[in-house]
Amino acid sequence: MRIVLACLATAAFATPAFAQDEPAAEQAAVAEEASARLTVAVGGAWIPDYEGSDDNRWTPIPAANGTVAGMSFTILGNRASLDVIPEVAGKDWNFQLGPVAVINLNRTNRDAIDDPRVAALGEIDTAVEVGGYIGIAKTGILHDYDTLSASLSYRHDVTKIHKSGIFTPSVNYTTPLSTKALVSVFASAEIVEDRYARTYFGVTPAGSVASGLPVFRPEGGQKDITVGGFVTHAITGDLTKGLALIVGGTYKKLVGDFADSPLVSIAGSRHQWTGGAGLALTF
């Protein structure tokens, strides 16, 4: 779900650099307007019941994006981030740096899990993962208005639920097709530590008795690889102001011990498909 949310944010809140070829005074006006921009969005995502499940369900996704003292913030579902480096209008290169926090809701609600074997393993308390990210973006790859970005984030559980960390490298390409349409595609992966693997993908002897699944003790490492894309289309106004529709989806493949876990190989699937749609209003 975290990847779906991140990509919805990219599609909903990306602002193409349409002002780059305008006179300096007009660029300054656009920059001032962008600094006061606020986007609010609501949508839904078709996501697996748990990470590794072959059953999906709908979940709502509220979102908001704006600026504080020139710094951009994003709140999207269970994820929040802040870019403390202001983006400079008209510059080809932009750097990103700031904190990120995620509320991990994986397997926190037994009633939301259709498979009785996984439900029998019991609920896991909600984990709060806090960390930071660093990234770089280049505008003007194939034409004046597209952007290629790369980032790396690290989060660590501060609630002592899985007591471990998650690294997430990602690459994203965004291009406007017109003043009303924008496409974003991405690839990412998650690398997790041992305790994360055991908390969400392991089966203890007691869990095996309760669920009928075999005992399994995974180790950390690369958990998955994900690719996806989203399309944003302005319903009113253009991509910088008004109401827009966002539609897209992702494919994630679990790898290594995570794909071999009984929660995945027996009760679920290593192939994870998600979809999402929503409406975003930019002021």
Rank of each mutant, 00 (worst) to 15 (best):
T39D: 15
A101W: 01
P23S: 06
L82T: 04
S265A: 13
S188R: 03
D114K: 10
A187Y: 01
I113F: 05
A36W: 09
S153H: 00
T74Q: 09
L38M: 15
G242L: 01
N172Y: 02
H271I: 02
G256P: 14
V102A: 03
G202I: 02
V88N: 14
E219L: 04
V4I: 04
K180G: 15
G44Y: 10
T10R: 02
I85L: 14
N104R: 09
N109W: 03
A280R: 07
E193R: 13
A31S: 15
L148Y: 01
D92S: 13
F258K: 09
F258C: 10
V231L: 09
A244G: 12
W46N: 07
A280F: 00
P169Y: 00
S81D: 12
Y145P: 09
L279Q: 12
R79K: 07
G256K: 06
P214S: 10
D54R: 10
A120Y: 04
R2S: 10
G212W: 01
Y154S: 08
Q27G: 06
I266R: 09
V203E: 00
V130L: 06
A101R: 07
G202S: 09
M1R: 01
A34I: 12
K160C: 10
F167Y: 11
T250Y: 02
A41W: 01
A181V: 14
F18L: 03
C7Q: 08
E190H: 11
A24V: 14
V209K: 13
P262L: 06
T168L: 02
D146I: 01
E123G: 15
F230W: 05
G165Q: 03
L243F: 08
S53Y: 00
D21M: 04
I103R: 13
A119Q: 09
I75W: 02
S35E: 15
A64F: 01
I235M: 05
A267P: 03
A189V: 06
I225Q: 04
R57I: 00
H143D: 15
A11S: 06
D111M: 09
A267Y: 00
N56V: 03
A150V: 08
S184C: 11
F95Y: 02
I75V: 14
D238F: 00
L243P: 11
S35M: 08
G132F: 00
Y133T: 06
A259H: 11
T179N: 13
I103G: 12
Y251M: 05
I166W: 01
L8I: 07
D146G: 13
E22N: 08
G98Q: 07
P262W: 01
A187C: 02
T204K: 08
G268M: 04
G77F: 01
R110Y: 04
S269K: 07
K241W: 05
A45C: 11
T236L: 02
A89C: 12
S53I: 02
V227A: 14
I161Q: 14
V42Q: 05
R79W: 12
S261H: 00
T204N: 12
F18H: 07
